[in-house]
Every structure is written in structure tokens, then in C-alpha cells.
Design a binder for these strands. Structure first.
Lengths: 223, 223
DNA sequence: TAGTGGTCTAGACCACGAC
DNA sequence: TCGTGGTCTAGACCACTAG
């Protein structure tokens, strides 16, 4: 098995934790080390991961306890929690252009002659409109393979986990051209989230403006 | 010195990192262990903390590198980054009442007879209005000491770090009674952030509604 | 006093990337 | 082949809490 021991233990512990009520104590690190036949440091690494994710919390010199579910961490609006709704996308635009707006050039830190992939799509959950996404990507940052598969992408977690994500929340009125698709009246206040996905080097990779339907999608983060 | 070695090393490394350009490599973990006269695992703990905070990034089998400043993590709208603006608060209301609205009772998970501390204040930066904060706290969760010092509180980080924070972003039009204080026209779209600070047990501790002035305060998170 | 989490050590082996 | 980060071990000492 090539999966690290501490990740295997972590998964087993999640199964155990699910059966326990909030604030119940888990066995001590030394006991768990015996139970899982691993060193205490390895077990500790598993526990630390679960504490970071909000499954457990520690009380120094007392023990480690099961956290309430409301404390499970969700740090960006792009992560999806374990809701069972099926998300689908309907592509409205997909093109590659050399001329992009100054706004896009600035966010992607590119010049006016660089090719930019533009994709505009409607996000649906059970056929109800959740949000409009305007996505801009520097063509040069995509392999041909990635470019071909762009329309099939559901999310950008693969890129975010390799670098970073900055989200800016902008209050605005729903744009006229999107009001109908989101089934909103004009002049309705909404939140537009500007997402910039960065590479590890800090260079911008993806710029995405998300116009959220407040009737359907609650923007929430937990930390 | 009672400060753990890995935290001391972390601080020293931050000083070193500040002098380096983005994407510059730092010495290998084995070299740093010699340099700081500590074990590799201890140095590694320092580095991991810096990676989590976005100061460094790792490239497996290659090395560890200085991250771009845009990647420094800021996971909630309540954290303040190292901007040098002086924040001040002007208290508008401060009282304790047994009768609270159903909304407050629900968020704090309390009954209609429980005493609730209510504080409404204006957040200023260089005399410019940033936001209105409506703060509600179950009186029973505060010691007399904490209650007395409430008006002096700047932030709630001491409580958040002990438990968790959930933030919900609600698009709305600026409430009439706050428009003037925020120097906004009526019918201006703004973001109201609902903050719920939880204890480790999961019980709600603080409920805070923040009406942000979009002209002054950009809501941004990095992760 | 016994048990807990928090820290720390000095080794070890592995997979992978660059040369 | 060599150096890197990633993992893992089997100990150890500490400060603190609860009985």
C-alpha cells in the first residue's frame, strides 16, 4: 500500500468519529498508537489533520474530543460541502480571443495581445440557477490537453491546491443580461465574487467572476 | 526560554524570508537543522507552519521556496493584515436586555428570557466609516471581568482561536438608519456579514452582523 | 500521583527529480 | 548518483490537570 500510514489512520478515525456524539473524548494518543500499531508521532499527525479540518479539538492536558459538525472547516466559497445536490453547468460562451478587456488583462497580469480563453456558464443545482460564472484563462498557461477538456471542468481545485486562491466579495446589483437567467428581478442586490487562482510562483492563472443567486446559494465559510 | 524551539526558528526564518525575493530557494531541511542546531523534525515543523501561512511553498523532491506575498493566507474577513491603518470604534449602543429578537435567539441558541448583551458600534479607519457592527452575546457566557471590558474590545480573536467562526455573506441594500453613518446613499448595495463565533463545544458564543461600507472596505480572503 | 497533550531527538527508509 | 522533501520510529522530558 502506498498510501501513508497517517492518512490510513486518519480515514479509520473519521469512521470512528462519525459514530460518536459531539464532545465525546477519543482515546489518548498513546492508546491509539497501540491500537493502530504505529508510533505516537504518526498517530499524532493523523489527529492534527483532523483537528485542522474541524473534526476534533484538543484540550491541553485533558484530552482530544469530537467537535460539533458546525465547526467543520470550509475556507472558500468554491469548496463544496457534503450536500448531495447534483451540480451541473450549462456553457453559454466559449471562445479564445486576443483582445481582452483591461480589467482581465490587469487581473491576469498579461498584455493586450495575449490570447485569453473566455468561458461563461450557468451553474445549476437540480435545474435551479445558482450562479453565472465568467472565467478567463491565459491560453499560454494551458496545455492542449487541458484546453480541450476545459468545457468539461467542474471546478478548479486541482489548480487551487497547487497554488493559492484570492476571493474578493463585491456587492452589486444583478447585471441586466444575467437577471433573467438567474430568475431574478432587475435591481436585485447580489454578491459578485472575484476569484483569482494563483500558481505557486504567485503568477495569476485563472480569473473568475461569479454572480451568485442569493435566493439559491448562501455564501458561507467556516474557520 | 519557554517559547518552543520550533516557534523561535519560525520567527528567525520569517526575518530571513523577508529579505529574499519571491521564488528564491531556502536551504534544505537538513542544512537548516544544522544551522539552527535542532533536529530536522523540529525545523520541519517550523517550515510547515510557514507553508500553511503562505510564506513558503514546497516542490516535492526539489526544495522549498519563498512564496509571493499575494499568497499569504487570510481566511476570514475579521483578520487584519499588516496594513498600517489605525482602526477605532465608536460605540452607538450598549445595553443588556432580557428580550431579544427571535433572530438573535435562534443564532445564539437561547431562550426568550436569557439576558443578551447588545453592542452597536461604528468602525473607523482614519476617521472614515468602515462598517457598522451589531454584536450580541449571551450574558451568561461572559465573566464579570469580560463584561466590564466589553466596550474596550477591538476584536474577538481570543474567542475565535479557542473555537470556530462561521461567516455568512448576505447581499442587501444599506439599512436606512445606517446609510448616513456610513456616508452612503440609500438603496446602495452592500454586503452584510453574519458572524457566529462558536466555542469548542459547538455552542454559539457571539453573534455579530457587520454592515460593510463597500466604498472603504474591500472584503477579501486568501487561502 | 498518574495520565494527557506538547515538544524534541537522532536516527532511518522511500520516491522522485536533476544531473 | 546524489540531494530533496515525505514519512516513520522508539524513545525522552516537560507542564499541566484531575483524582
Amino acid at each position: 500500500m502506498s498510501i501513508p500510514i497517517y492518512l490510513q489512520i486518519k480515514e479509520k478515525m473519521i469512521d470512528t468519529i462519525r459514530e460518536l456524539p459531539a464532545n465525546a473524548p477519543i482515546p489518548s494518543e498513546r492508546d491509539l498508537a497501540i491500537q493502530y500499531d504505529a508510533s505516537r508521532m504518526t498517530v499524532r499527525k493523523s489527529i492534527n489533520a483532523l483537528v485542522d479540518e474541524g473534526y476534533l479539538y484538543r484540550d491541553s492536558n485533558k484530552g482530544t474530543f469530537v467537535a460539533d459538525k458546525v465547526l467543520h472547516k470550509k475556507n472558500t466559497t468554491l469548496e463544496k460541502k457534503d450536500d448531495n445536490r447534483k451540480i451541473s453547468y450549462k456553457t453559454i460562451y466559449f471562445d479564445v480571443k486576443a483582445s481582452s478587456s483591461e480589467e482581465v488583462q490587469e487581473r491576469l497580469n498579461i498584455g493586450p495581445e495575449d490570447s485569453v480563453v473566455r468561458m461563461i456558464r450557468l451553474m445549476l443545482s437540480d435545474d435551479r440557477p445558482q450562479a453565472i460564472e465568467e472565467i478567463y484563462i491565459n491560453r499560454l498557461n494551458l496545455s492542449d490537453e487541458e484546453f480541450r477538456n476545459l468545457p468539461k471542468w467542474q471546478d478548479f481545485n486541482a489548480f487551487i491546491s497547487k497554488g493559492g486562491l484570492t476571493q474578493r466579495f463585491v456587492p452589486t446589483l444583478v447585471p441586466m443580461q444575467y437577471a433573467h437567467m438567474l430568475e431574478l428581478k432587475i435591481h436585485e442586490p447580489i454578491i459578485m465574487v472575484e476569484n483569482i487562482v494563483n500558481q505557486k510562483s504567485g503568477k495569476p492563472l485563472i480569473y473568475m467572476k461569479v454572480f451568485n443567486n442569493p435566493k439559491e446559494k448562501v455564501i458561507e465559510i467556516t474557520s
